[in-house]
Design a protein around this nucleic acid. Sequence first.
DNA 1: GCACCCCCATGACATCTGTCATGGAGAACT
DNA 2: AGTTCTCCATGACAGATGTCATGGGGGTGC
Lengths: 201, 201
Amino acid sequence: MIRILLADDEHLIRGAMAALLSLEDDLDVVAQAATGAEALATARAVRPDVAVIDLQMPDLDGVAVAQALGAELPECGTMIVTSHGRPGHLKRALAAGVRGFLPKTVSSDVLATVVRTVHTGGRYVDPALAAEAISAGDSPLTPREADVLELALEGAPVDEIARRASLSPGTVRNYLSSAVGKTGASNRHEAARFARAKGWI
Amino acid sequence: MIRILLADDEHLIRGAMAALLSLEDDLDVVAQAATGAEALATARAVRPDVAVIDLQMPDLDGVAVAQALGAELPECGTMIVTSHGRPGHLKRALAAGVRGFLPKTVSSDVLATVVRTVHTGGRYVDPALAAEAISAGDSPLTPREADVLELALEGAPVDEIARRASLSPGTVRNYLSSAVGKTGASNRHEAARFARAKGWI
DNA sequence: GCACCCCCATGACATCTGTCATGGAGAACT
DNA sequence: AGTTCTCCATGACAGATGTCATGGGGGTGC
């Protein structure tokens, strides 16, 4: 019997997934959590075999939870399910030791199968998401460029970005300019959106 | 027996919701759809009593489907479930004749209850979302300002917005400036983000 | 009719941004 | 030791943007 921890902030979905997984004879949902912190605390208490974690949650996101889980409970396989699969998430997740990565568009059969795969030490990444991640390529941005672009995402003016990044406004403009060139965008906002879509920031 | 049409692009969630709803004796999920267009086509064929529709779907969004459904099948109650409830959506949905509006964070009990409420002609809006919508207030933007701001959302330069809106660049800048003033933002990108958060665009 | 709004436009001005040239400090590699 | 890269910074300039004044056309309400 595979003991599963389910973490998702959407009650409806979490309950529903639990119902589906429990239909399988060899799967048992032993705990549920609605936030990242709750998921961690619960995992420490029940020590599940597999943790199925939603990517976006109120406090810690799925990747952060996976990271902590990998350090504390190495015997627990971690997999992530998500609604909006952006390429960068997949990369970060794999780096955090996640062994399964699925969009919520898959059927419950696939979900159950992947739970089993992860439990036996295997890996599974949704083919479509993998293809996207590959086509997105590696980030051409330097770390600072990425930092600055991330701050630019919210539409802040240069001066504020400079303050927040502890840089001079001139330097910020240089990085932004460079990032705009690398992304082929026509201004920093477009560049920021592009980089976000690619998962670079 | 209440006959339900379920539309959601996420297989996992749709299947799971179907499973949950089917546990209720008086509810019967008679059809499912993965896109807005499919939902409409299916609704025409099976004529359900209640349509439970996800807000964000690949083609038509939930509100568009609800609108069409209200016109074609007035006897069919429409309700919307959503992951990210932005205030504007709720307003648009109610205007489109939707009688139930829920976040996916509710429990399955509530979902079932609301399905019954909608079926008997009642209305139900999640209290938290309603409060948000009220606190967001009405849009202070004129229709054109909203149009222009929406185009600005993607970070396009003024000239492109002008082309897309068939306005002169000067006029676009005036609207943008006015919108920036009304939102209290320090530039149009911030204004656009703000307006989007409030559901004004 | 008149006041009041929204729509659309133009011109002028100050400021903000994007781009480029330049340069120094420090790390990594040959 | 030299090359090359990133990181940080400054200055200068063109072009984009934000702001304001101004004005005509059209609709609504009193």
